[in-house]
Design a protein around this nucleic acid. Structure first.
Lengths: 114, 114
DNA sequence: CTTTAGTGCAACCATCTCGTTGCACTTCGC
DNA sequence: GCGAAGTGCAACGAGATGGTTGCACTAAAG
């Protein structure tokens, strides 16, 4: 659990914005184009388009031509992998804390050995 | 899998920064104060202090007085919960896509009824 | 061909974010 | 008490970010 994949940071960064969550929630209900997403969200089509590019860069979304429109859909693969990594990290942190507690109750007073 | 807890957005936002990852990686090796973290990272103590506040706000880190210093340590509980939610989301997205594929191969051509 | 829906690109603006420096305050140790 | 270590707070600057408008381009539809 050392190097947090660049991917994970990118995904977290992408998921750190409310508008992008709004977009993803829409996409959960079905694939849609930037223009389609624009009506129903309080931002312009261009802004949404930019967000979709970011989501695509993070691998959370894929697009597909459909006639003259680009239809975007949410893809879980990358997010699933990231969630897994984060879960492992969390478990490791809790394990470390647990070890410390054990050591503390088994006689040796804590000194937080680096 | 509807409302992404405000917490999750906050955690993602917190994890969307490289410096904060660096800090967390240090904390994985043991609790430390802002000043201690400062030596070894290419930013000032004040900057690190701000980052630690953000991490604390997201529930990724807790602090504890130790004499005149504040010692921070990584805590996995919140991150674990967030990772879980993200994992469920990812699974849901993949399931949706799978259903679409099935429907496509079973005769009905896709129209993306969303 | 003309219209219209869907995109892409660029300029521009407001704000947030990350980092800095500088100073004041507390607390441990001599 | 005094110096040094550890913090907190505030002001400030550079750059990233999220949003807008405006215009040009392509492709479906009439």
């Amino acid at each position: 659990m050392n190097g947090p994949d660049r991917t994970v940071v990118e995904i977290c960064s992408a998921l750190g914005d409310d508008t992008r969550w709004a977009i993803l929630r829409r996409l959960e209900a079905g694939a849609a184009s930037a223009s389609a997403l624009a009506e129903g969200l309080p931002v312009t089509r261009q802004a949404i388009s930019r967000h979709l590019e970011i989501l695509r860069g993070a691998g959370l979304v894929e697009r597909e031509r459909h006639g003259r429109e680009l239809r975007y859909r949410a893809v879980g693969t990358r997010l699933g992998a990231a969630a897994n990594q984060l879960g492992l990290m969390a478990a490791a942190w809790d394990r470390r804390l647990e070890r410390l507690r054990e050591r503390a109750t088994s006689g040796t007073e804590p000194g937080e050995p680096g």
